[in-house]
């Protein structure tokens, strides 16, 4: 039955290429039809604006009767996306999938998810908690991540940068990604972030 999957992907691929939508893009990975890379741009008026986010799409043999397996490979600060692994919590990629949905719809839905988070159905509890209790800090953090990892424009938050530098001085074995992750997890409280690193060592 992989035949129907391959045929569908070929058609869908053409559909996305032809549709000429600027905000989404689809690429084949090394001529393997069942493994693709998708790109979406961050929606306007969100912390993700101007960023370019990559998703890895794996097509199961039973596609389109089962949903594609999609995860972000660009690091992202969002309640419904794991900040560590990029795993996405989105109903249409699980039980709400329908066989008539296409990769184009999946990409557009991911874009919509960036505009409208569902903090009550979180994938990343830490991010969801920050989203609900310290929303302005959440927005600054999400923006900082989009600028750092997805190439979103604009000057980086100087306060955050200072904290990252300080973190790296105290914990020289950590890299910059770890520093950002740790500080974000602890609402940019540098003492708690460093304490946690040493605790886990």
């Amino acid at each position: 039955m992989a035949n129907i999957a391959m045929q569908r992907i070929r058609r869908e691929f053409k559909e996305v290429v032809r549709s000429d939508e600027q905000s989404i893009k689809l690429e084949l990975q090394e001529d393997n039809v069942l493994s693709l890379t998708g790109y979406i741009t961050g929606p306007e008026k969100t912390p993700y604006e101007g960023g370019r986010f990559h998703v890895q799409i794996t097509i199961p043999e039973t596609y389109p009767f089962n949903p594609p397996i999609v995860k972000f490979t660009t690091k992202l600060w969002h309640p419904n996306i794991s900040s560590q692994t990029g795993v996405i919590c989105l109903d249409i990629l699980k039980d709400q999938w329908a066989a008539a949905m296409t990769l184009r719809i999946v990409l557009l839905s991911l874009q919509a998810l960036l505009s409208a988070a569902e903090p009550d159905d979180p994938q990343d509890a830490v991010v969801a908690n920050q989203y609900k209790t310290k929303h302005s800090l959440f927005q600054q953090t999400a923006r900082f991540w989009a600028q750092t990892f997805a190439g979103a424009p604009g000057p980086l938050n100087p306060d955050f940068q200072k904290k990252i530098d300080k973190f790296l001085e105290v914990a020289p074995r950590a890299d910059r990604h770890t520093a950002i992750q740790q500080l974000s997890n602890f609402d940019w409280n540098i003492d708690k972030a460093i304490e946690d690193v040493y605790k886990s060592d």
Binding site: Q7, R8, E12, A100
Partner: peptide, 8 residues
């Protein structure tokens, strides 16, 4: 007249 599943 394309099938909504296989798109053929």
């Amino acid at each position: 007249f394309e099938c909504n599943i296989c798109l053929d």
